[in-house]
């Protein structure tokens, strides 16, 4: 049983986590942020990230045979690190999206995915 702030604290405890943000996908709003924040503007990155997810969903929906799509998580690896995006379906509105940026060398992608999965189950029960 986790609150939003606790959840982000837990996300930041994932080995190699640099910063994290919780996004309301519908409005593109940063609900809460964890760690870092020195280089990034939470609002702008929330808007950008929800746009990434939207574009990916649209693109994949068209590309997949059924025309419908459900993303469990999304990993984008850049020169500097990994971006892990995980949409959480909520019963009210949403989805909520957890985004965490991981250090390229210090992080373990499989572990991070696993932890994010466990955390999202604590935050939202569907």
């Amino acid at each position: 049983m986790l609150g939003i702030e606790d959840c982000l604290a837990e996300v930041m405890a994932i080995p190699g986590a640099l910063d994290a943000v919780l996004i309301d996908q519908t409005s593109g709003m940063a609900v809460a942020t964890g760690g870092g924040g020195r280089h990034t503007d939470a609002e702008k990155s929330a808007a950008g990230l929800s746009e990434i997810l939207r574009a990916t969903l649209d693109g994949l929906a068209v590309a997949s045979p059924g025309g419908t799509i459900r993303i469990r998580d999304m990993i984008i690896t850049t020169d500097d690190g990994h971006h892990l995006l995980r949409p959480l379906e909520t019963v009210f509105d949403g989805p909520l999206v957890i985004h965490v940026r991981l250090d390229l060398n210090r992080s373990n992608l499989a572990l991070a995915r696993h932890r994010l999965q466990a955390l999202s189950d604590c935050l939202i029960t569907t």
Binding site: M1, L2, G3, I4, D6, C7, D24, S27, M29, V31, T90, V91, F92, D93, G94, L96, C122, L123, I124, T125
Partner: peptide, 21 residues
């Protein structure tokens, strides 16, 4: 509501957040 176990703390917060905004 949270104590009753009908929804998690995170869900309640998110629901309130949504409704307030």
């Amino acid at each position: 509501l949270v104590d009753k176990g009908v929804l998690t703390r995170g869900e309640l917060e998110f629901c309130v957040l949504n409704a307030v905004l």
